[in-house]
């Protein structure tokens, strides 16, 4: 459900950028969404189709890049993807880790005409 407010914020951001570039329409929006945010691309698409009606972004293609939840071991400094039910480092079995990826939620770029 939080996709509704996230999509509205994303649309506002995109329309602002398009206006700054004096573009007539937005053809494509490249988004980066971290796995940890729980944001579902399909839901964003659903709300986007609805919210963008009558705006310069109507009909724009949404492209999602999903980044996995990535951790870095504070002991051996190796990086790995966080397991679903196991948060220990697969290399040294340490459990003191730092989350370094998967929290992203941003507009990377847009294609305008």
């Amino acid at each position: 459900m939080h996709e509704l407010s996230i999509t509205q914020s994303m649309l506002d951001l995109v329309l602002g950028e398009a206006e700054k570039a004096e573009a007539e329409s937005v053809a494509k929006i490249n988004l980066v969404i971290g796995e940890m945010t729980g944001v579902v691309g399909q839901c964003v698409q659903f709300y986007f189709d609805f919210l963008s009606k009558g705006t310069a972004a109507e009909g724009a293609l949404l492209n999602f890049k999903v980044t996995p939840t990535t951790a870095k071991c504070r002991h051996c400094a190796k990086k790995f993807e966080l397991g679903e039910f196991d948060w220990t480092c697969p290399y040294c079995k340490g459990n003191n880790i730092e989350i370094v990826g998967g929290k992203e939620l941003f507009v990377e770029s847009i294609e305008v005409e």
């Binding site: 996230i6 914020s9 951001l13 950028e17 398009a18 939620l105 770029s109 294609e111 305008v112």
Partner: peptide, 14 residues
């Protein structure tokens, strides 16, 4: 034309 944006979607909330 492609425009680099790299802005947080929830920047306005922030």
């Amino acid at each position: 034309m492609e425009i680099k944006v790299v802005k947080d979607i929830l920047g306005a909330n922030e």
